[in-house]
Computed example of a mutant assay.
Amino acid sequence: MRISAEQRAENQNRVRAAMDRLLRGEIPPGGNCDIKTLAREGGVDRTAFYGNRPYAQLRQEFETRLQAQRAAGEISDPRLAQITRLKNENDALKRRLAERDRTITLLTDFKAGALSRLAAQHDEITRLRAAPTGASNVRRFPARTSTAGPCH
């Protein structure tokens, strides 16, 4: 079925208005910033946007404007913006998690080293307490019997 020039102009105006809305980010529920949604919002059959069909130039215009927006860092589709934001957050969380893992590894290694040094010091103190015998000029401290702390 052929349409008149007036009907075609009216359809083009509706499609351009829908194009402007989509590129501003006014995406209808269940739609995307794509040709399918553009056709539905413009009230035109989607096949009219392909090949040598009457609205192929509008599809090219839409795709050019959409690519220009994306190249400029403007994302008109809120879901794409959300996906991008979530990917960035995910990357940041992965970096934080890796940093925390490194910190935990360092602290675990430090703890093991500190416990090893404490054990060695304890062994050395025990050896030194047992070493002096009667004729030495080293005076032995009495063994600690209370765990309440130092006396005043």
Rank of each mutant, 00 (worst) to 15 (best):
Q60S: 15
R14F: 07
G149F: 03
R79N: 11
G25Y: 08
G149E: 05
P78S: 10
K94F: 03
G149W: 08
T105H: 12
G51D: 09
L38Q: 04
L58I: 11
I3A: 04
D34T: 07
E41T: 07
T126Q: 13
L97S: 13
D77I: 00
K94Y: 04
F141W: 09
R96L: 07
L97Q: 12
N90E: 02
C151T: 15
N13D: 15
T133R: 12
R79T: 10
Q60P: 00
L58F: 04
N11F: 12
F141M: 10
R40N: 04
A5S: 15
A18E: 07
R85I: 00
R24S: 01
E10A: 14
Q69F: 02
L86G: 01
L107E: 13
R59M: 05
M1G: 15
V15C: 01
H122W: 12
E41H: 06
A143L: 08
R24P: 00
P28Y: 06
S136C: 12
A18S: 11
R16H: 07
H152M: 13
R59T: 03
G31L: 03
R129N: 13
R140W: 02
P142S: 13
L66G: 00
A112T: 13
S146A: 11
N88I: 11
R65S: 06
A17M: 14
E124A: 14
A17G: 01
P54C: 00
L97I: 10
N137K: 10
V138P: 00
Q7S: 06
E6M: 07
P132E: 14
G149N: 03
S76C: 12
G25V: 07
R100Y: 12
G149D: 01
R100G: 06
I27V: 15
R16D: 14
L38I: 08
A98G: 02
E124V: 10
Y50R: 02
E124K: 10
R102P: 01
P54L: 12
N90G: 00
S146C: 05
